[in-house]
């Protein structure tokens, strides 16, 4: 039960089309990833809400196919 990094990125990209997404595989087993996501959609949301948005994008795969996902989320810095 694992997930390819590309599949993870595709799911996140679908929900956050203009986001900057960086994924790294922490354990090389397709089960433990870290993802940092900078997306306009996060603006004004607190950290828990931002992470809930990402989990919603993963359509229930989080906690099942994907055991651990360390998330770093933020809105783009305002220039």
């Amino acid at each position: 039960m694992a997930m390819e990094a590309a599949e993870l990125e595709r799911l996140i990209r679908e929900a956050f089309p203009t986001a900057t997404i960086e994924i790294n595989d922490l354990a090389g087993d397709g089960d433990h990833y870290a993802a940092s996501i900078i997306a306009e959609e996060f603006r004004g949301k607190n950290r828990v809400q931002q992470h809930q948005m990402v989990y919603a994008a993963l359509k229930g795969k989080m906690g099942g196919e994907l055991h651990a996902l360390a998330l770093q989320t933020s809105a783009p810095a305002q220039d």
Binding site: V48, Y55, A56, L58, M62, G63
Partner: peptide, 9 residues
Amino acid sequence: VKDFTQWPT
């Protein structure tokens, strides 16, 4: 508890 908060872990 996962449904209660929409938090999967």
